[in-house]
Amino acid sequence: MTADALPAPVRAQSNRVLVVALIATTAMLFTAFAAAYLERSGARGWRRLDLPGILWANTLVLALSSVAAEIARRSRARPFDAVKDRSNVASFTGKPQGIARWALPASVLLGLLFLAGQAAAWAELRAEGVFLPTSPYASFFYLLTAIHAVHVAAALLALSVALTRARILGLAVGFWHFMGIVWLYVLLILKVLG
C-alpha cells in the first residue's frame, strides 16, 4: 500500500539496492559451500567422479538464456541511454520492436530447459548408482547443483514477472546474469578445485 506512495525514482533505487544485497547474501552462501568443499577435499576418502556430459550442454543453454535476457533488457533501455536520464528508467514502459519482443520469453524457456537438463544430469548419475550419500564428492555435487537450481527457479520467477512488469526487467536480468556466474563458479569448484 505505502509502496505506491514512494516516488518512482526512489522505488527504482530501492529495488536496485535490494537486488545488490540479495546478490551479496547469495554469493556468501556459495562462498561458504566452496570453503566447505575445499576443506573437505583435503580429508580422507575424497574421490572425484566423472560428471555427466550433459552439464556442458546445460552451461551453453544457460549462457544463451543470459544473452537473450540481455537483448531484451537493452531493447527496452535504449531510449534512455539517449536522454541520459537514468532516474526515469523505472517509469518507462516502452515496448521493444521486432525480434527483441521474443527475447525475454526465449530467455525464460531456455532457463526452464536448463533446469530440465540439470534434472537429466541427476537422473543419469542415479542410474549409475551415484546417490547423495555415495561419496563426499557426490554429496557436494548434489547439494551445490540443487541449491543453485533453487535459486535459478526463483530468478526465473522474477524474469517471468518481468514479462508483464517492465520496470523490474533490468533487475531481474541482473540477477539472472548472476545466476549464470554462480553456475560457472559451481562448475569451477567441482571440476578444478579439490
Partner: peptide, 9 residues
C-alpha cells in the same frame, strides 16, 4: 546479510 549465509550452508 553477509554473515548469516554460511550458517545457512
Amino acid at each position: 546479510i553477509l554473515a548469516f549465509p554460511p550458517l545457512t550452508a
